[in-house]
């Protein structure tokens, strides 16, 4: 088994699927010779040719639009948007078409496309390069939304996304691209979409997170363990559909829940999880559900960026509050 970064794992999953399914076509800005600005598609054009790995003109609306056309034709388009901040112009296509092509045609046509894009802050990139758009997407009926937080999950979930019969938005946490390495079996085995991953078992409090924030959440759990507090850590991974049974079962055990996400708080996916806990898990809750999130402001530019992101200290403070309740 090779030890891969999250970027390597994405590259490996794309390569696997290109090699095993002729219908898979990759396109996006600078993904060919340059291998993408983060190098997620490094070497793929060279290996699979310009017919299957294409540099698209600079036009995100068009990238999403043609993915829909290809998908309706039975291809498996995997498009890349260079940064999530530049995907907003794709929303017309994602919301009006990709998400409802199957529904509108009563199953006659469908849209098995994948849109990959780097998300999140913490790399001190320029303006609009650190967006966390998952809530906009998870709000859209008909889409699936996934965000991996480790190389192995990136590999397995991306394979699942490409093989899925419906449109999947695949949000890759930029901050984790090169940060973590782990052994990943490059064997073409997918992980299930719509399932959360319990990364650490515990009985005192449930910590729920996804994407890059899983990192700080795990660090917080580690520190809590040193203080004798046993935290269960769940990586939601699939933001739509949401695996509430796993979260509810955990909270039934711990009675306390802290949700951690980088996106702004209001109407974030954390609110959806909290609402579900209130309606389905009220009797197991021993304390109000806490959210540790970005503020309801745009992500600040580099100088103040770190003030915005959920930190281990903020997570620990929230755990303190739910335990003291």
């Amino acid at each position: 088994m090779n030890t891969l970064t999250l970027l390597d794992a994405i590259n490996a999953a794309l390569a696997w699927e290109l090699a095993h399914d002729d219908n898979v076509v990759l396109f996006g800005e600078d993904i060919g010779k340059n291998g993408g600005v983060f190098r997620a598609t490094l070497g793929l054009q060279e290996r699979f040719g310009e017919q299957r790995v294409l540099d698209a003109p600079l036009a995100e609306t068009q990238i999403a639009g043609m993915a829909i056309g290809m998908a309706a034709q039975g291809l498996r388009p995997v498009c890349e948007i260079q940064f999530a901040g530049f995907m907003y112009s794709t929303f017309d296509h994602l919301i009006n078409h990709a998400a409802r092509l199957r529904h509108r045609t009563r199953g006659r046509l469908s849209c098995p496309m994948v849109l990959r894009t780097p998300v999140g802050g913490g790399i001190h990139a320029p303006e609009h390069h650190g967006e966390s758009p998952e809530a906009w997407l998870a709000h859209t009926p008909g889409l699936k939304v996934v965000s991996p937080s480790s190389p192995a999950r990136a590999y397995g979930l991306l394979l699942a996304a490409i093989r899925d019969p419906d449109p999947v938005i695949f949000l890759e946490p930029t901050r984790l691209y090169r940060l973590l390495k782990e052994p990943v079996a490059d064997n073409g085995e997918a992980l299930p979409l719509g399932a959360a991953f319990t990364l650490r078992e515990g009985c005192d409090v449930t910590l729920v997170s996804w994407g890059a924030s899983v990192l700080e959440t795990l660090q917080a759990a580690e520190q809590l363990a040193e203080q004798g507090v046993s935290a269960e850590v769940i990586d939601v991974a699939s933001l739509k559909p949401l695996d509430m049974p796993t979260i509810l079962a955990s909270v039934a055990k711990t009675g306390r829940c802290v949700i951690v996400h980088e996106a702004a708080r209001q109407c974030g996916v954390g609110a959806e999880i909290a609402a579900n806990l209130a309606s389905e898990g009220l009797m197991s809750l021993l304390a109000p559900v806490e959210r540790v999130t970005g503020f309801d402001t745009p992500l600040p530019l580099a100088r103040l960026e770190d003030e915005y992101l959920p930190s281990v200290a903020r997570i620990l403070a929230a755990v303190e509050r739910v335990r003291a309740y």
Binding site: E29, D30, K33, V37, D55, P57, L58
Partner: peptide, 9 residues
């Protein structure tokens, strides 16, 4: 445009 030459744009 980054790595894309104008003739491919």
């Amino acid at each position: 445009a980054i790595s894309l030459p104008a003739r491919k744009q």
